[in-house]
């Protein structure tokens, strides 16, 4: 059986400072193939469409089932996870680019350190006394749990930030993912104890007030997290916090 070929145009970059360039690859088109399986094909035969032998394209991926958040890239101009990007559903030829709002490491790999640093800034954790056995956790309604659960599915993939018109390579904007974490932990009975710290952390430059409500974040979030609700809720919480700061500090 002869297989139809699929053309992939890939934006490559050898080192962080280097100039980017495009290369075209042909891979066999198989049913249910996704972008990762195409990139794996390139590894098996790293030759461009015009017959030039090149280094295989590098990319990040791990779980291949959209729970780890590794394989975010810009596919046909739109940011998404490469593992769930089935080639049958994509316009051809397919273009692959690294995310533009994070520093490129190499080819399709970018450095998302900033997102993880932001988690530290907003203390995105529950301050437990220790991991020793001190009995049950706090009682919580299943409705509150469900609300927290959808938010806690955030896999720090960066889609919401790449698509955000306020988030740029060099500004300080924290972005939807971080605001969502603030809401997630402020909703937990124990996490709530550090609520003020978290709110004050998002009330500075690059904080919640910088959000322009373009709401692209919620459209591109692969986990369907209600990010705009989180943003508005943090808007409310910070508004009260600001009033409190003005009158009680």
């Amino acid at each position: 059986m002869t297989e139809k070929n699929l053309t992939l145009k890939i934006k490559r970059q050898d080192t962080p400072g280097a100039a980017a360039y495009w290369q075209t690859f042909e891979v066999p088109h198989r049913p249910f193939a996704n972008i990762i399986s195409c990139l794996m094909e390139i590894q098996k035969s790293p030759t461009t469409g015009d017959g030039k032998k090149v280094c295989p394209v590098t990319w990040d991926s791990n779980c291949l089932e959209e729970v780890c958040g590794s394989c975010t890239m810009v596919i046909n101009g739109r940011v998404r996870q490469a593992c769930t990007a089935l080639v049958d559903n994509l316009e051809k030829p397919i273009t692959l680019e690294p995310m533009s709002k994070f520093p490129v490491i190499r080819d399709l790999q970018v450095n998302r350190e900033r997102m993880f640093e932001n988690l530290k800034k907003v203390k995105a954790w529950v301050d437990i006394d220790g991991s020793h056995d001190i009995g049950e956790g706090p009682i919580m309604t299943d409705q509150d749990r469900a609300k927290r659960y959808v938010m806690s599915e955030c896999m720090t993939c960066g889609c919401c930030l790449e698509a955000c018109p306020q988030f740029t390579l060099d500004n300080a904007f924290l972005g939807a993912a971080t605001f969502n974490q603030v809401r997630l932990f402020n909703l937990h009975p124990t996490g709530e104890m550090k609520k003020e710290d978290r709110l004050n952390a998002v009330m500075g430059e690059g904080g919640i007030a910088d959000c322009g409500n373009a709401q692209v974040c919620v459209e591109v979030c692969p986990k369907n997290i209600p990010l705009t609700e989180s943003i508005a809720d943090i808007g409310r919480q910070t508004t009260w916090q600001a009033i409190k700061n003005i009158f009680t500090k």
Partner: peptide
């Protein structure tokens, strides 16, 4: 219980357990 205390969104019963 430890993981629950850390904030894992475990599904809960009607009484919140």
């Amino acid at each position: 219980h430890l993981m629950d205390r850390m904030g894992v969104a475990f599904n809960r019963t009607g009484e919140g357990h």
